[in-house]
């Protein structure tokens, strides 16, 4: 079903509960009563079209209006990406970590194997943090400053001072793949670890890992296919001011 602005927000969640993540990250709280998507967005100062396009692309992987995304404000996109980082680092990762810890405690005999998984994941979290921190402390502030320059039609003082030497190409060169290790972890758990005794716990761990992988894929897609090309357009615009 095509998601439209006159649809009720509550119905949207019934249609696809995974969109709860989008709703939360775009900055909308639950408790919609009978309000439509458009009404809820307006109340929360969220651009309705931006919400619709994001919701449609997360709901249907064939739907991805790249050109349309370029027309939205860089600030909106960055806000959304930041909330995703926050949600992944502060909530999803600790949850998986906790589940792995429980497993290690549960399986005394094969602990060595599970210890191995724990270390693998710990190393991964470290990498993930470095990756996201770089985006938060360099890339996003750069994009926001760039957007300010375009709005005021001149290179601002702050931009000259901090970002004159920076460009998005530099970020692109070391924007590494953060999904690969999650992919590996999934396969190691499914194919190579000796089966655990409590498969209910084990399945719920795997389930979380699948969800994390999907989350990271959607996130990277927005960064690679929307943010980076959009910033390139913005850089050109600034050059030609």
């Amino acid at each position: 079903m095509l998601i439209t602005a006159d649809m009720k927000m509550a119905d949207l969640i019934h249609l696809d509960f995974q969109l709860l993540a989008v709703i939360q990250r775009i900055g909308i709280n639950l408790g919609f009563r009978e309000k439509t998507i458009d009404e809820v967005c307006k109340e929360n100062d969220v651009d309705t079209d931006f919400f619709i396009q994001i919701a449609r692309s997360f709901h249907d992987k064939d739907y991805f209006p790249k050109e349309k995304f370029f027309t939205f404000k860089a600030e909106w996109l960055i806000h959304f990406l930041r909330r995703t980082h926050q949600c992944i680092l502060e909530y999803k990762i600790p949850e998986i970590e906790e589940k792995i810890k429980l497993m290690v405690e549960d399986l005394k005999e094969t602990t060595r194997n599970y210890e191995l998984i724990k270390n693998f994941f710990t190393e991964y979290i470290r990498e993930l943090r470095v990756h996201m921190e770089l985006e938060e402390t360099q890339v996003f502030p750069y994009v926001l400053a760039l957007s300010e320059c375009i709005e005021s039609k001149t290179k601002t003082e702050g931009f000259e001072k901090y970002f004159n030497e920076y460009n998005i190409q530099r970020y692109l060169e070391d924007h590494n793949d953060i999904e690969e290790k999650v992919f590996d972890l999934k396969n190691i758990l499914i194919k190579y670890l000796p089966p655990p005794t409590d498969s209910c716990k084990y399945n719920s761990l795997l389930f979380e890992i699948f969800k994390l992988e999907k989350d990271l894929q959607d996130h990277s897609k927005l960064e690679d296919k929307v943010l980076i090309p959009k910033v390139k357009l913005m850089e050109n615009e600034l050059e030609n001011l």
Binding site: L116, I117, F120, E123, Y124, E180, K181, F183, D184, L185, N187, I188, K191
Partner: peptide
Amino acid sequence: GIKTVSGLTV
């Protein structure tokens, strides 16, 4: 079905 060096080590 394993891509990274750390995955291969495990």
